[in-house]
Design a protein around this nucleic acid. Structure first.
Lengths: 232, 232
DNA sequence: TTCGGTTTGTAACATTTGATACATTTACAA
DNA sequence: TTGTAAATGTATCAAATGTTACAAACCGAA
């Protein structure tokens, strides 16, 4: 029996660590939520939470678990955008604006618990508490910035450039070994390329002395040439 | 002699048509602006207004003229993002959030006049008037939605798909001829492909009876097959 | 009209990537 | 240890696009 529609309690100690409620005390948050209507739903692993194109008229906040956001192009293929974990909110940038539709399809990585606040109720929250308003403005702006970064990443033409950009970003200032968080196949998916192509590019870069690969561990050998890759 | 630093008057009749000040009367707007500090600057054609990466600590609103937003990848090439005309605001989504830097380089298409409001002063406006707040939330959200759309567009793999998507969007419901706003080269730039490749794709689609091209005018002949292109 | 610069059409070739297949290695559990 | 499934490395071929070059068509000014 599905629990999807069953209502659970919010956990204010967790929610107040959410970007939107940061700085609010658990007690204060409980008091605020006492003044509005909301739902708490649970989803099983792999269950769909939102479908790209669906109307977005409520704010979703993950209270427990982790979800996966994917964008599906017209060909039916999906490009993984990101993983989102508790206590982060979903679809913050699509509550307002002209086209109130989810741009991505979201599915549960694990069993998740999601707090659902209808838009009018959330507007009440924004009016009740200026800290929440400020947090929301920051969240929504960071969202746009994230999308902007994604756009920049997709502007890299070659796989080598994508690899170079990714590794340099992961490595930061260090010249150390980078560990790919998940599998090579998932990295390829994130890059929007096929796995063999990614492996080939990694192999070539390895042969040329740019990097050293050992399965999930990649060591940057020549940071200068990596940077030049991005500029040519 | 450059006029860049010279201060002009705001034109409240124009500004109140801006998405951010929609619904505010010119008089009310003048009153609101009387309570904050701001600047009005002019830029000559082709003059740089912001550079990608520069700190964004003020809201910019175009009062007169038109600007061009471009994103430059590491290779020095630029991808044109969009044209923005008076009385639209610039960089609305980058005033708040973590990384307060302009994601794009903006330059003047024509001689432009720009109202510059420092962030703290703009926050005052948001607190003074709830209509402005609501407008701003809508604007910033629409911005994220626009970026999301761009992302989706870039997810099209083949040039044919990009052409199909572009033409179908331009044509809307009609089956009529679409006129490319600018040159074919600029369209190629927007697609992130080279001009000969775009011309070749157009030529092939023309040969196959999908479209009929006459320089800047493109007639959609087979809408069904065009739609199928996006799904295969 | 004629000229010169810009835009567009087209071709040949090089490069990159996708698709597919298969061998190898690894991880994990029986 | 051994067996099995998943992840990875590699190869081959096809498809798509970039690169470069040049000719043709267009446009505006003299």
């Amino acid at each position: 029996m599905l629990q999807t529609e069953e209502t659970f309690m919010i956990q204010s100690e967790i929610l107040c660590q959410s970007p939107i409620f940061r700085g609010i005390s658990p007690d204060e948050l409980l008091h605020l939520f006492g003044q509005i209507h909301y739902q708490v739903k649970t989803y099983q692993k792999n269950e769909l939470i939102t479908i790209g194109g669906e109307i977005c008229d409520r704010l979703l906040i993950i209270q427990r678990g982790s979800v996966k956001a994917e964008m599906n192009d017209y060909s039916g293929k999906t490009i993984k955008i990101e993983d989102i974990e508790a206590p982060r909110p979903l679809a913050t940038a699509f509550l307002f604006g002209k086209e109130n539709r989810f741009p991505v399809t979201v599915s549960a990585n694990t069993e998740v618990e999601i707090v659902s606040v209808p838009k009018p109720e959330f507007v009440k929250l924004l009016q009740l508490n200026s800290l929440i308003l400020n947090n929301y403005l920051n969240t929504i702006s960071s969202r746009a910035q994230f999308l902007s970064q994604k756009l920049k990443f997709l502007s890299f033409k070659t796989i080598r450039q994508k690899i170079a950009h990714y590794l340099l970003e992961m490595a930061g200032d260090r010249l150390h070994t980078v560990e790919i968080p998940q599998s090579q196949g998932q990295l390829a998916e994130m890059f929007g390329v096929t796995r063999p192509s990614l492996a080939r590019a990694l192999g070539e870069m390895s042969q040329e002395g740019l990097i050293e690969t050992d399965r999930r561990y990649i060591k940057i050998l020549d940071k200068n040439r990596m940077n030049q890759l991005l500029k040519s």
